[in-house]
Design a protein around this nucleic acid. Structure first.
Lengths: 137, 137
DNA sequence: TATAAATATACCAAATAAGTATACTTTTGA
DNA sequence: TCAAAAGTATACTTATTTGGTATATTTATA
């Protein structure tokens, strides 16, 4: 039931860029130092955030990264999904072929987990970076 | 944000034993066949459930396993914790030394995740096997 | 007391996550 | 116009976790 180290890094990077402000860009190496993230790993992670539309990148001399959306429109769910893909508590709930009992849909355990998962996802989606910045938790 | 395969197996095993009824015991190999779990792996997993007080074991000829508590007193959280240990969304929230920024307690991201985690845990703890059996979800 | 069960411990293999390396493209500005 | 400073793409390596197996031992019953 954990987010990965990469997901954790990503949340901190997004918060950092949010605090920097919408139009402001900054080079990856500064983020790496500030957040203590290995530079290469950070670059890879930033690309996922760019693909996810959460971060903008600027190439060339004087390039860097900036936040792509207003903090009120970015949620924990958005960031975690950009990094780790779809959120699911149990693989059965994502890949129907996975259940080795072929009980998908009728399995009582998975029905219960599905409920937990729904709550978790909506919870993650309710926490925006604006709330995090303003400490409105 | 996932439970492990072992955790999934365990939930099914506990449900199976619940359905069997409190006093009824059954050998591991029957559970293995019924739930399609590798026997050796199941045995290891059952020991964790025994240590967790969720399942009772009976050694010797005619031995086996039975549920140790009433289904209304066993929750998803109980089983998952017996198998996987304490539930935490982010390692920072469990091992304070882990945060590579030493921001524990003051880190905004982790404060947000802590909230998600609390909700998740209380959600898992609210679903008992009685509810699962009666389909009261 | 032989046998059928669980237990303990250690080991191995597969999958995933974390981190690194190399080569390339884009942009800017002297 | 081209050198340098940024990001991009892809592939690789290493570490950690998870899933599964093996061997030897203990316990309880018929």
């Amino acid at each position: 039931m954990r987010i990965t180290q990469e997901g954790d890094y990503a949340l901190r990077v997004v918060l950092y860029l949010c605090n920097l402000g919408m139009g402001e860009k900054i080079e990856a190496k500064h983020i790496a130092v500030h957040e203590k993230i290995p530079l290469r790993f950070l670059l890879k992670l930033l690309r996922k955030l760019v693909h996810g539309g959460i971060v903008r990148s600027f190439r060339g001399v004087g390039g860097g990264y900036s936040i792509a959306q207003e903090p009120k429109n970015i949620t924990l769910k958005n960031v975690i999904e950009a990094i780790e893909g779809p959120i699911y508590v149990n693989r059965c709930l994502y890949d129907k072929d996975f259940c080795n009992l072929n009980r998908t849909g009728s399995c009582d355990v998975h029905r219960a987990l599905n409920q937990v998962q729904s709550n978790l996802i909506s919870d993650l989606d309710s926490i925006t970076f604006e709330k995090i910045m303003k400490n409105e938790l």
